[in-house]
């Protein structure tokens, strides 16, 4: 804990706001710049920041690897499942008009679901990739940098 004390305190302070900002970007993507891709990256960057300054194993306790693998697949399935649901409700694949009573609210629902799928997959894959690299890294000494 003696190394990078300032950085660690700041990282702890920033962790929750970054996650909150990720959710803001995710759900405000319909109205302003943003969306699933960006939100996923920002969400993942919070964990990457944590992983850089603390050891990865502590982050594993509440975001286990298994969850990441499942999450990456669930995102894709949520996306494709939204498409399939619109087929089952009588439309074309990924044609959200039929998801709700009015076409526009169906579109809203479809876009939210699809963006959620994108966000989950991107966040999980980026954290997974970061951990794959971090696991290989032997503990770096100060003079290595």
């Amino acid at each position: 804990m003696q190394h990078h004390l300032v950085l660690r305190v700041i990282a702890k302070l920033l962790f929750a706001p970054i996650l909150l900002f990720a959710f803001y970007v995710q759900f405000h993507g319909d109205f302003g710049p943003g969306g699933g891709f960006q939100a996923g990256l920002i969400f993942a960057s919070a964990f990457v920041l944590h992983g850089l300054l603390f050891d990865v194993s502590s982050a594993r306790q509440f975001l286990p690897d298994r969850l990441l693998q499942v999450g990456a697949a669930v995102g894709v399935l949520l996306y494709a499942g939204t498409g399939l649901a619109s087929v089952l409700l009588g439309g074309n694949f990924l044609d959200y008009d039929h998801l709700a009573e009015a076409p526009t609210s169906g579109q809203h629902l479809g876009i939210i679901l699809v963006e959620a799928g994108v966000g989950i997959t991107v966040a999980c894959v980026v954290v997974m990739v970061f951990r794959a690299f971090a696991d290989h890294l032997p503990c770096l000494r100060e003079q290595d940098w």
């Binding site: 319909d30 990924l94 479809g110 997959t121």
Partner: peptide, 27 residues
């Protein structure tokens, strides 16, 4: 679609199939 952000509208709805492919590539 009634979504103000045109980029989101095209990304998720008009060109949803395209984006599905991209997500699969990332996966």
């Amino acid at each position: 679609i009634d979504v103000p952000n045109l980029v989101t509208a095209i990304l998720a709805s008009y060109r949803g199939f395209d984006t599905l492919g991209e997500v699969v590539v990332i996966f």
